[in-house]
Amino acid sequence: MAFSSGCRIGAPVAAILLLGLAAAASAQLSATFYDTSCPSALATIKSAVTAAVNSEPRMGASLLRLHFHDCFVQGCDASVLLNDTATFTGEQTAFPNRDSIRGFGVIDTAKAQVEAVCPQTVSCADILTVAARDSVVALGGPSYTVPLGRRDSTTASLSEANSDLPPPTSDLADLVGNFSRKGLSVTDMVALSGAHTIGQAECKNFRSRIYGESNIDAAFAASRQANCPQSSDGDKNLAPLDESTPDAFDNAYYVNMLSQQGLLHSDQQLFNGGSTDDLVSTYASDAAQFSADFAAAMVNMGNIGVLTGAQGEIRLICSKVN
């Protein structure tokens, strides 16, 4: 965007304009977007996702995380799905993504099945968004209505993937700021963090916490140290983010916080004498409130920076532009 006379738009004004554009784009999304053009789309996606999660429960967490890593970089435009080529560098080799994000095969399967019934109609961005919802449902979490009509990007941003995805070492202020820059509230941030009620983390991402932090239950730390040595050995060894019910989407993640059993530094920051303590306590005691707030936050996150109308494209294959 250019401005005459060399004028430079101020940051607050730019932020307002960007939020306005995002709101206008998300307003074009509709839960009934494919009712006429591809009425079997949602059922087809759900079938592929449910089969994958039933085969490997951890895949549910991976698909949910893949959606998050997509939306926080350029918006929910399926840019994370683009493979590198000789002339194109995507987001998958960014530090937060490298050897970490997974689930691409499930999205590819769902896309192929949708293409078989509705050629070049349903975007990869919508498939990824619906797959995240269906993963949550498959593991016992809340269902919610997904607004649809996203289109796929023809670009990706390695630099943005490196800078905009919050690391597991984030403090509370970092988390609040990171989510705020994406137009998400503190409530959204705390509720979305509840996705860590499923899935696993690598030893390298929680080693410093279990060996060097004081706000951690001693028995819990010892149990995690058994599979995560203090040396660099075992970097990729996995531990459940919620060891009590690792494959069930529930509110146990917040109960763990109350007992100082957050696996990641960023997890325990949500209940560490700060401004989000009360909200964590609420979710720990009220599973229904967590479910409602999580569903609302997922819809809000799914609206970040979407492409609609004539923007972008409908990719034939999710891993490459047409």
Rank of each mutant, 00 (worst) to 15 (best):
V114G: 08
D171E: 09
S79D: 13
S208E: 11
P229D: 15
S135F: 05
F179P: 12
A23Q: 05
S37R: 14
S185Q: 11
T282L: 15
I304Q: 11
A218M: 03
A252F: 01
E243Q: 06
N300T: 01
S170I: 00
F3Y: 12
L128M: 11
G60S: 03
Y254M: 13
C228T: 05
T93P: 02
L139M: 13
S285R: 07
V73L: 12
G183P: 10
N162I: 01
L192W: 13
L158W: 02
T169S: 15
F220K: 11
H69M: 06
S223T: 02
N303R: 11
F88L: 10
Y211T: 03
I314S: 08
D286S: 12
L264A: 02
A156N: 05
V53G: 09
K236E: 14
A252Y: 01
A252N: 11
A61Y: 03
T155G: 05
A51S: 12
N215V: 03
A226R: 13
C71N: 10
T276C: 09
A2Q: 13
L18P: 00
D174L: 02
G212E: 08
V80T: 13
A86I: 03
V299H: 04
A138S: 10
Q268C: 06
G309D: 07
S180H: 08
I107M: 12
K111T: 08
F88I: 03
A222E: 11
R209W: 00
D235M: 04
G105I: 01
V280N: 15
Q225N: 13
S223Y: 01
L175D: 15
D108S: 07
A15I: 04
P166F: 07
S79V: 01
A221V: 03
A94W: 08
S214V: 01
G199Y: 03
P166A: 14
N97V: 00
R150Q: 06
V299E: 12
P168H: 05
L148G: 07
S55G: 09
S208I: 00
A112V: 00
L238M: 14
C124W: 03
D286W: 01
T129Q: 12
N54G: 07
N227P: 08
D278F: 04
D99N: 09
N227L: 14
V255K: 12
N83F: 05
N227S: 15
G20L: 06
F3G: 09
Q260G: 03
I127Q: 11
D70Y: 00
Q92L: 07
P142Q: 12
A218K: 10
D164E: 12
D70I: 00
L139S: 05
A239T: 05
T36D: 15
G199T: 02
R98M: 09
Q92W: 03
H196M: 06
D235L: 07
L64K: 03
Q28G: 04
D77H: 01
M189V: 02
Q311R: 09
A239Q: 12
C76M: 07
R150V: 00
V73N: 14
N83D: 15
I127P: 09
